[in-house]
Amino acid sequence: MTTDLEVRPSDYRTSAHPDWCPGCGDFGILNAIRQALAELGLHPHNVLAVSGIGCSGKTPHYIKSYGLHTLHGRALPVATGAKLANHELTVLAMGGDGDGYGIGAGHFVNSGRRNLDLTYIVFNNGVYGLTKGQSSPTLHRGVKTRSMAEPSFQDAANPLAVAISSGYTFVARGYAMDTKAMKEILVRAIRHRGTAMVDVLQPCPVYNNVLTVSWYAGRDLASAIPRIYNLEEEEGFDPRVADPDDLDEVNAKKITAIARSFEWGDRIPTGVFYDIDLPTLEDGFRSHRPDAPDSAVYKQAVPGQDVTPLFNRFR
């Protein structure tokens, strides 16, 4: 990671104006990403933002780093290949809930298993916005949003629980309307060595008339207390696994995190749920093949490799 304290959020600003709807949670996430990258002092040319398809997929167009707007659901495999090709890059993968937990669900699970050093940000709004508001894999059963003909008859998946079960070593939830907290989570996620997954609750002001800013703020509740709260301010909660070799601690922290991830309704936890240091995919490659030449840094001039030593295998 090349760092420089001189980098400012404005260095990540582009001339293109986001074409998101007014009031969209995506603006908050975009700002949080720019601020986090600047705070980490990362030079824009060392950052690759890889996105899927949907409103969130357009985000790399608004970040002045290297950006790759890929296919629906495929941000993670593209990001995986890019990171393995050049491990000096800071790679951010991003996409929506339909993108990551629906069409890209297989990649979501298997990327957790690999623990490559990258960050995955999911803009989770419960609907497919760009196709006009169909239900997404995180919309709860029985919920009917504006453009749906009838309530959803399919259950919601719990992405945080799936992430923890799949091996993600840093699992967090942010709230798009709280840019400051989001930025803090992203700084920790990008710093984390391993695959960090950040699910972001992101109100869609046009199609999701159920999970609104007002609802997250708890304005419908008698207490009028915001539903969103910071898990890490709860007494006794610590997402960090102190000793990754202590299976009892690992399991206890996982179980607590998964239990908290099912909390929904009047209180919705945000913050870091689970955080553990484990060997990354590259560590695995490296420890298994200590003498292997480095394949993971791009080189403009690829040298042709001499294959004649391999001929012996065929003699």
């Binding site: 690759l48 890889v50 790759l68 890929t70 296919l71 495929r74 993670l76 495999p77 593209v78 990001a79 995986t80 290949g81 890019a82 990171k83 393995l84 090709a85 050049n86 890059l89 297989g106 990649h107 699970v109 298997n110 490659f285 093949r289 003498d291 292997a292 030449p293 480095d294 394949s295 993971a296 791009y298 080189k299 403009q300 490799q305 030593p309 391999l310």
Partner: peptide, 30 residues
């Protein structure tokens, strides 16, 4: 031959992933 040559071989979760991993790697200079 990964110990002898600078190559990383990764088994993906499906061919969709494999194709896109290879594209990502090519995009990033490999």
């Amino acid at each position: 031959v990964q110990s002898e040559y600078p190559i990383t071989v990764l088994q993906g979760e499906d061919e969709i992933a494999c194709m896109n991993m290879a594209t990502g790697a090519a995009h990033a200079g490999a």
